Computed example of a mutant assay.
Amino acid sequence: MAGKPKLYYFNGRGRMETIRWLLAAAGIEVCFCFIKKPIILLIFLLKDGSLLFQQVPMVEIDGMKMVQTRAILNYIAGKHSLYGKDLKERALIDMYVEATMDLNEMIMHYPIQPPETKAKHLATIIEKATTRYFPVYEKALKDHGQDFLVGNRFSRADVQLLETILMAEECKPDMLSKFPVLQAFKAKISNIPTIKKFLQPGSQRKPPLDEKLIPKVMSIFNIGNE
């Protein structure tokens, strides 16, 4: 029997967070190997060639040491039936997911913005979320009248959209005020048992980066990018 997947990253959000979400949605227990100092990353990961491109996140799973966030997510989704029933559904899921990851990336970088650009960055997040991204999901769900984004079946697209919605609401609590269908979607997906468990206090979900953690994170990644 295969052991639990091992997740290598710092003890906080970042590009590992969506991987945590997807594994949690699939009901998979994981082990964390937190990177606390650059030298640890250098000795234990770079020196033995585990990090193909000198970057984390890295996930040990099924005998592989996987890097590159999208490759990891694709593998987990495919393995756990969260990637549609055919090639067309997978293509649609990919389109939705790529868009949510674009918005997710903007939100993820908000805490590390310098003070002089932070307000402008937040305004961009709000503008993009409410005029470019959320209207698409609102219309898609409304047009087909189903509970899930693709094929009336729970998929990674639903997981990643919920993650991004909750991150957006951390920036602006009323972000969904003009999107009633997305509000219903949020409630529905949040109550799926594995997701509900992940949203409980004490779960492996990570909070937003705070000011105290940011310098530590920057130090960890001074030998490479995420």
Rank of each mutant, 00 (worst) to 15 (best):
1 M>L: 11
7 L>Y: 06
7 L>I: 15
7 L>V: 15
11 N>C: 05
11 N>S: 11
12 G>Y: 04
12 G>A: 11
13 R>K: 12
18 T>N: 09
19 I>L: 01
19 I>Q: 02
21 W>N: 04
22 L>F: 00
23 L>Y: 08
33 C>D: 15
36 K>A: 14
40 I>L: 05
40 I>P: 06
55 Q>E: 10
56 V>H: 05
56 V>L: 13
60 E>T: 12
63 G>D: 04
64 M>A: 15
69 T>V: 12
72 I>M: 02
74 N>D: 15
83 Y>V: 10
83 Y>H: 11
84 G>C: 08
86 D>I: 03
86 D>K: 13
89 E>N: 00
89 E>K: 06
89 E>L: 03
94 D>M: 12
98 E>H: 13
101 M>A: 08
106 M>N: 06
107 I>Y: 13
108 M>I: 00
108 M>C: 14
109 H>Q: 12
115 P>R: 12
115 P>E: 14
115 P>G: 07
116 E>P: 03
118 K>C: 04
119 A>C: 08
120 K>H: 01
121 H>N: 12
127 E>Q: 11
128 K>W: 04
129 A>I: 11
129 A>H: 02
130 T>W: 00
133 Y>L: 13
134 F>E: 05
134 F>Y: 12
135 P>R: 05
137 Y>G: 06
138 E>L: 01
141 L>I: 06
144 H>K: 05
144 H>V: 05
145 G>D: 01
146 Q>N: 11
146 Q>V: 00
148 F>K: 02
148 F>V: 05
154 F>L: 14
156 R>Y: 15
166 L>W: 10
166 L>P: 13
172 K>M: 13
175 M>H: 03
178 K>I: 00
181 V>F: 02
188 K>P: 06
191 N>F: 03
191 N>E: 08
192 I>H: 14
192 I>D: 10
194 T>A: 09
198 F>M: 07
198 F>K: 06
200 Q>S: 05
205 R>I: 11
206 K>Q: 05
207 P>F: 08
207 P>V: 11
209 L>V: 06
210 D>P: 03
211 E>F: 02
221 F>R: 09
221 F>V: 12
224 G>M: 00
226 E>G: 00
226 E>R: 02
